[in-house]
C-alpha cells in the first residue's frame, strides 16, 4: 500500500471468521498530513469488514477531534488499504483451504 504517513495495523489476531475486527491507527509521518497532528497516540477501534465503510470511520475520527477535515482522505485511504489487505488475506486463506 502507498505510504500515507498514517499506519493502520491489526490490534488483534485475525481468526478469519469474525466480521468485526480491532484495528489500531497512528501517525507515523506527521509531515504527510495537511494539518498539524495533535499527537494523540494510537487510536484503537473496531471495524466491521462486511458492513462498514472506511471513509465513515475516518469521518467519525474527524468529528471526534482526532484529525482535521482536510485530512479525511488520507485517513480514509489508510484504513481502506488495510481493510483491503485483510480481506485479500482472508480470501487467499479460503482459496488455499479449498
Amino acid at each position: 500500500a502507498e505510504n500515507t504517513g498514517v499506519r493502520v495495523e491489526l490490534a488483534e489476531e485475525d481468526d478469519g471468521k469474525k466480521s468485526s475486527i480491532a484495528l489500531k491507527l497512528w501517525v507515523e509521518d506527521p509531515k504527510k498530513l495537511k494539518t498539524k497532528y495533535k499527537d494523540n497516540g494510537a487510536i484503537e477501534f473496531t471495524f466491521d469488514l462486511e458492513n462498514e465503510v472506511p471513509e465513515d470511520v475516518a469521518q467519525e475520527m474527524i468529528e471526534s477531534g482526532f484529525f482535521h477535515e482536510s485530512d479525511i482522505k488520507i485517513v480514509g485511504k489508510s484504513i481502506k488499504d488495510r481493510v483491503a489487505l485483510i480481506k485479500w488475506k482472508r480470501e487467499r486463506t479460503v482459496l488455499l483451504q479449498v
Binding site: 499506519r7 494523540n40 487510536i43 484503537e44 477501534f45 473496531t46 467519525e60 471526534s64 477531534g65
Partner: peptide
C-alpha cells in the same frame, strides 16, 4: 494506564493509547 476513551456520537468507541516505541522504530 494512560489509555483514554472517546465515544463518538454514532456509538463507535475509540481507545487512545501511546504508540508502542518498537513500532515507531519499525519503519
Amino acid at each position: 494506564s494512560s489509555a483514554a476513551q472517546v465515544v463518538h456520537s454514532a456509538g463507535r468507541r475509540f481507545i487512545v493509547s501511546p504508540v508502542p516505541e518498537a513500532r515507531l522504530k519499525d519503519q
